[in-house]
Computed example of a mutant assay.
Amino acid sequence: MTHEAVGTQRGWNDRLPPAKAYKPLSGLSRDKRTAEQDKAAGGRYRRAVPLGKGQFARASITLRLYRRTRRIRAYLRWSVSGYTEERYVCDVAEATRAANLAHAWRKAREAGLAVDEPLPESSTATSMSVRAVMTANKGADTKPELLLRSALHRKGLRYRVGVRPIPELRRTADVVFTKVKVAVFVDGCFWHGCPEHYRPSRQNSEAWSKKIKDNRDRDVATTNALKDQGWIVLRFWEHEDPELAAREIKATVERRKAVV
Rank of each mutant, 00 (worst) to 15 (best):
G7F: 03
G112T: 05
E94W: 01
E196K: 15
H197A: 10
E248P: 03
T172Q: 01
V6H: 11
R97T: 05
R247T: 13
N215G: 12
R255S: 09
G27K: 09
E110G: 14
L101W: 03
V175A: 06
V115S: 02
E243W: 00
R131N: 06
E85H: 13
A245E: 01
D31T: 15
K210R: 15
I72N: 03
A108Y: 05
V220P: 00
V115D: 03
S150H: 09
F190H: 09
P165D: 01
Q37P: 06
A40C: 12
R106H: 11
E117T: 02
Y66E: 11
A35D: 10
D31P: 00
R106Q: 13
I249N: 01
D14A: 15
L76G: 07
R131P: 04
A98I: 02
A207K: 12
E168D: 14
D228E: 12
I232V: 15
H153T: 14
K257F: 08
L119C: 07
D38V: 11
F236W: 00
D214P: 02
F56V: 08
Q9T: 11
K211Q: 11
E86H: 09
R30P: 00
G54V: 12
A95T: 06
Y45N: 06
R199K: 15
R15S: 14
V233I: 10
D217Y: 02
V161W: 00
W208C: 00
V80N: 06
K210N: 12
A151T: 12
K181F: 04
E117K: 05
C194T: 13
P24V: 08
Y83P: 00
K155D: 09
W231L: 03
R73Q: 13
G54A: 08
D38T: 07
V6W: 06
A104Y: 04
Q55W: 09
A93D: 09
R97N: 01
Y75K: 04
N13E: 09
R170I: 08
T8I: 12
G27S: 08
A93H: 12
R47W: 04
R30H: 13
K181V: 05
R216K: 13
L51Q: 04
T172D: 02
K155H: 05
R44M: 07
R131S: 07
L16I: 08
G42Y: 02
G193S: 10
D219R: 02
E254M: 13
T34E: 14
K155M: 13
L152H: 07
S150C: 09
L147H: 03
R131V: 05
P50Q: 01
Q55M: 11
G54E: 00
D219V: 07
W78A: 07
F185N: 01
R47T: 07
R235G: 06
A183W: 01
V220A: 11
D228N: 10
R67D: 08
T34C: 09
R77W: 00
T252E: 10
H3W: 05
L76Y: 04
K181T: 04
E121C: 00
A258R: 13
K227M: 04
R58A: 10
E168H: 13
R247N: 00
E86P: 07
L25A: 15
A35H: 09
